[in-house]
Design a protein around this nucleic acid. Structure first.
Ligand SMILES: [Mn+2]
Ligand SMILES: [Mn+2]
Ligand SMILES: [Zn+2]
Ligand SMILES: [Zn+2]
Lengths: 145, 145
DNA sequence: ATTGTAATTGATAATCATTATCATTAGCAA
DNA sequence: TTGCTAATGATAATGATTATCAATTACAAT
């Protein structure tokens, strides 16, 4: 049993939630996938293993994973929320190609520090932030010419 | 006739679009309001002046304003797109209070420069970005204790 | 093992901002 | 005026997500 599973089971126990095969299956599949996945994409994979699972359950489990600290929401502004691993996957921002949609995870400690300073200069205590950098990747730039 | 109106009329002419009282009214009301406004909020104000206007038209005019370079979309992630003035209102980011929802417009030239560098270090040519800083304002911090 | 109870599930309806459709109306150039 | 399109308003549709609810199930206590 890996660490994430452990955290999930502890979370269930602590909140009087029950350990069901649906929750286990959805957890497994989420953990195996790296990257950013939408509820629908996850549901499509889950269905293959157990066609009787409803998509409402996928949404419900994703909420649990967030509360348990195992998942984090990403909003690229296209109307679909995606989810990524949070455990052992520290904060980062995203660089997104407007041509092909490719995303890279980036972090710059100087920017992070300056964000805190900017907030403080307005009397704010910064809790978190979102930063999306949009542009064209090398591939897409070459194709454009 | 102010500069924004001029730009709007030029845009209409250039694209074989017609000058209608609905477009004029919605433009006027948008221009008078500073800050961030949703389509529904704008529609509520428009209705008071002309109850016969449909909300679809408000959505349509907002699209035109964006294409004409007079408006810009803001997405605070709450499921509602807001609009702000773009003309004579250069790029900036937003500092948002998680307590009271107050927003401040901020810009830090060092951050802007570093964003470009980060993107370039991955072979990207940066076109634009979004940055939202979330935290608690001074008021809300005092109330919390 | 059985039971009781409250949590969970899947199907389905509802939500809600935004977009599409379409018949009617109205700019505007000739 | 007229004719050609664009524009409008009412309404339906969309699509991701959430709510509802009857039936099922986990699980702790017997
Ligand atoms: Mn990521
Ligand atoms: Mn702003
Ligand atoms: Zn690309
Ligand atoms: Zn506040």
């Amino acid at each position: 049993m890996n660490e994430e599973q452990n955290i999930f089971h502890k979370y269930l126990e602590k909140h009087d939630l029950r350990d069901t095969p649906q929750r286990e299956l959805i957890l497994q599949i989420f953990l195996r996938r790296e990257g950013h996945i939408s509820a629908e994409q996850l549901y499509d994979i889950v269905k293959k293993r157990d066609p009787s699972i409803g998509q409402a359950t996928v949404y419900r489990v994703l909420k649990l994973l967030i509360e348990a600290g195992l998942a984090r929401e990403i909003d690229f502004g296209d109307g679909v929320i995606r989810y990524e691993h949070k455990y052992n996957h520290p904060h980062h921002d995203h660089l997104v190609c407007r041509g092909c949609g490719k995303t890279l995870e980036v972090v710059d400690s100087v920017i992070e520090e300056l964000q805190k300073r900017v907030a403080e200069s307005y009397g704010f205590e910064l809790t978190d932030h979102e930063m999306y950098l949009y542009g064209y990747c090398e591939n897409c730039r070459q194709k454009r010419q």
